[in-house]
Design a protein around this nucleic acid. Structure first.
Lengths: 312, 312
DNA sequence: CAAGATTTATAGATTTTATCTATACAAAGA
DNA sequence: TCTTTGTATAGATAAAATCTATAAATCTTG
């Protein structure tokens, strides 16, 4: 017994004519006859009385056909279900995101996304790059939002946008006199860094060609835990730091005046969605990518003519 | 999509293991993988997350599997239904039966049959042989009970029993002196016949080698419409007639004393069930045959050593 | 009542699908 | 790193569904 045979008997019941039913099923009459005969043999029941014109179902046949219709209705439901479900954005998405991005990126899209897709449950963890990679591998999170490229086996990267790096300069710094600066303009001895583990720290070090150098401005030693801390230090004390573009979104005029952009080619960090091997929540990923890209486009409208991705 | 694929995903959901599920389905793991992949492609939905160990259905997969189980349950019902129905004796059976048999045969089995198979509806028409054949051809009745053989195209005969023909002799007839008689002993001029149309009439004529002879006993001309009429005439008047064995079932002693059996080979009439070409109520026919044969066996226990079927 | 039309069944060829064996690939454990 | 476990894939084979052509049966019509 198979679903087609059931369709065939329902068609014959409907048309009361083998040829018409066959046409309706897009098969030849010969095939229809054979398939129905086969079903009858399997069930050991005669479904149609072919001696009548038009053909009529037998008493038994009517019951079989009724049940066949139930089955076909249920298979219709299954197909419908699949169609609805696959287009429906739903389920849980566990996101890991680096701390230098989280407070600036998440507010840009999260609220809209949750309102637009009420069936989607999102769980966010602020993690540094290594933690994200580990948790992806152990299926503790579904997707990471972090700076790329990362050389990690089995990870897939989906670049979202390129975020400029800019300098944030203390009021009494010499660098502030220039409109555009070069990496070389940054005095590595006056550069404040994030604490160990932040990818932005290594990017800052790479940008300024700084290797394992202890940054020590006078009597203060401070490895900042967040960009906001970095900013505060520069403001209160002296020196310079490098921050990503989105961090200056909510800057007041005072802070804005302390920003200095780099001369072309502009250093940028590549921000990507990263998934591990057997990631299957493709629909959710697609939505996430779409929502982030859209939201970010409003804040990073123009792309510099020349840019280069700073290594991690 | 087909029923097997649904069975396969249900099996994988149950065993949470492709190889075990494949064994349970009596196929190889390769086939199972391919079939499930095919279903997933058709529905455009991923049903199982194979990266997990043991494999688990996806959120979507769980819903698909649940609906698959509904469908499989309904197909189970269909098979059950067929099994029950095909063993259940039910439906309407329209029987045509010759008048020389009806009042003697029907009481022997009809009541028991209806009680035994309450789902069976029986409609009986007393018809002569030609009417039965015509009504069978026109699907006005399903089965005939009559004397055979009949040479009619498309008819199928299922012999039930062989009914002896006996002589019923008036008290003042010479023939009564013999214990067993021969057809030649019957004076055709003293033989009462049934009216035209009864097969028993032609059988009587064939038995007595009588052709188109007007039977006329003195001043009475009477073509009887029933065996009971024949008996009454013989009793009241004189002469002789031929009746079938079952007609003497309810005879009192007086009547029994007027019966004379034929010497071997004993003339019998063959009583059969007759159906037309596309008869499909085979189960009902089987039951009818069984019930009649059983009932008649109680009244016609011994079969004569030598007998011959009288032609119609 | 024979000839043609209509309807379903059947035979044999062909295409499609399901299944198998063997092997690859991936992940986990020793 | 090697072995073990679990799933996927490739190619061959077996099974099935389907097709074309035609038969058989019935019905219609001149």
């Amino acid at each position: 017994m198979n679903l087609q045979q059931l369709e065939y008997i329902v068609a014959v019941d409907k048309h009361r004519h083998f040829l018409k039913a066959a046409d309706a099923c897009f098969i030849t009459q010969a095939t229809l006859s054979m398939m129905i005969k086969k079903l009858e043999e399997e069930l050991e029941v005669i479904i149609f009385d072919r001696s009548k014109q038009p053909v009529v179902p037998t008493d038994i046949g009517r019951k079989i056909i009724a049940q066949a219709q139930v089955i076909l209705r249920e298979t219709g439901h299954l197909k419908e279900l699949a169609k609805i479900i696959k287009n429906e954005v739903q389920g849980q998405l566990r996101i890991g995101i680096i701390p230098t991005l989280a407070p600036y990126l998440l507010p840009l899209f999260l609220y809209d996304l949750l309102r637009k897709y009420p069936q989607v449950k999102i769980r966010i963890s602020e993690l540094n790059t290594n933690q994200i990679i580990e948790q992806l591998s152990n299926d503790l999170i579904d997707v990471g939002i972090l700076a790329t490229p990362i050389a990690a086996e089995g990870m897939k990267e989906y670049p979202l946008f390129y975020e400029k790096l800019v300098a944030f300069v203390s009021g009494n710094e010499e660098t502030l006199n220039k409109q555009y600066i070069l990496p070389e303009d940054i005095d590595v001895n006056r550069l404040w860094l994030l604490e160990e583990g932040h990818c932005l720290r290594s990017q800052m070090m790479n940008l300024c060609e700084l290797r394992n150098k202890n940054t020590d401005l006078g009597n203060l030693e401070y490895e900042a835990g967040s960009i906001e801390s970095l900013l505060k230090i520069v403001e209160i004390n002296k020196g310079i730091t490098v921050i990503p573009e989105l961090a200056m979104n909510t800057f007041d005029e005072k802070r804005k005046s302390q920003i200095r952009e780099f001369m072309a080619p502009v250093p940028v960090r590549e921000i990507s969605l990263v998934t591990y091997r057997h990631f299957i929540k493709t629909k959710l990923l697609e939505v996430l990518k779409q929502e982030i890209t859209e939201a970010v486009a409003k804040f990073i409208p123009e792309k510099p003519a020349e840019q280069f991705v700073v290594e991690i």
